[in-house]
Computed example of a mutant assay.
Amino acid sequence: MTGSNKHPQAPWRNFYGRIHGKTLRDAHKEFLDTDLDALSPGKVGWDENPDRAPIDLKALFGGRDVWLEVGFGGGEHMVHQAAQNPDVGIIGCEPFINGVAMLLGKIRQAEVDNVAVHPGDVRDMFDVLPEASISRAFLLYPDPWPKKRHHRRRFVTPDHLEPLARVLKPGAIFRVATDIPDYVRQTLEQVPRHGFEWLAEHPEDWRQPWGDWISTRYEQKALREGRTPHYLTFRRV
């Protein structure tokens, strides 16, 4: 499904993008039926939490630092980080149910137990995350919305950056990866306006991937098609 979908309890929020793709394979249906509920980060939905009470991250992850991945795609990066950082809890938000199913399969295969999954709009998660509770956030190859009239749909707009800044701890790191030059422009224009500083000092700081990076299928597609990845690192002031 594509286009604008009105949120049933928050009609002021348009959601643009796909929710469903190709017909799910039986294995993916089984992952969704058996694994997803157990990985819920708490009461995020409006139907179960109409007062938008904060979720209990200590109960969820036992007092560990918490990271957030916005739109985890097929889940390669999220599972990689979870496996490399067992002392951290990672919440992933993704409305595209096919991607959620792919992630659940990878979680099973990697046998990581420090993850939580919200199959929906990250703005609903922002509502219920406690203030200054997230130590690191990732925005990796987001939907570029290339047409100029659609740039307001991008993540790097006040509708997303203001609540992101609220839930990040002072000093928290925010990583953005994209292969779209105009997305780089908008990111560098908008993110510092919302309480972040760009940490680059040399061209290599945005041309070279992070030391703990794992290349995703979206990045591999960009490279095959001749587009150049950019790796932008910001710190919450």
Results as ranks from 00 to 15, higher is better:
Asp65Tyr: 02
Gly45Trp: 06
Lys43Gly: 02
Ala27Val: 14
Ala27Trp: 05
Pro50Cys: 08
Ile55Gly: 12
Gly45Pro: 01
Asp47Pro: 00
Ala53Pro: 00
Asp47Ser: 09
Thr23Lys: 15
Trp46Ala: 15
Glu48Asp: 14
Ile55Val: 15
Gly62Ala: 05
Glu48Cys: 07
Arg13Trp: 11
Pro50Val: 12
Arg13Thr: 06
Arg52Gly: 05
Ala38Trp: 03
Ala59Phe: 01
Pro54Leu: 11
Leu32Glu: 05
Leu60Asp: 03
Lys58Cys: 01
Gly42Trp: 07
Asn14Ala: 15
Trp67Thr: 12
His28Leu: 03
Trp12Glu: 15
Glu30Asn: 07
Pro54Ile: 10
Thr23Leu: 10
Lys29Tyr: 01
Trp12Ser: 13
Gly45Arg: 11
Leu24Lys: 10
Ala27Arg: 14
Gly42Asp: 03
Phe15Trp: 04
Phe31Arg: 14
Phe15Gln: 04
Pro54Gln: 08
Tyr16Val: 13
Gly63Phe: 07
Leu24Cys: 10
Ala27Cys: 03
Pro11Thr: 13
Gly17Trp: 08
Val66His: 11
Lys58Pro: 00
Tyr16Glu: 10
Gly62Lys: 07
Gly45Glu: 06
Trp12Phe: 10
His28Gln: 15
Gly63Arg: 09
Leu39Asp: 06
Leu24Ala: 09
Asp37Val: 09
Gly42Glu: 03
Asp51Gln: 15
Pro41Thr: 08
Asp33Arg: 13
Phe61Pro: 08
Glu48Ile: 13
Phe61Trp: 08
Arg25Tyr: 05
Phe31His: 15
His28Lys: 15
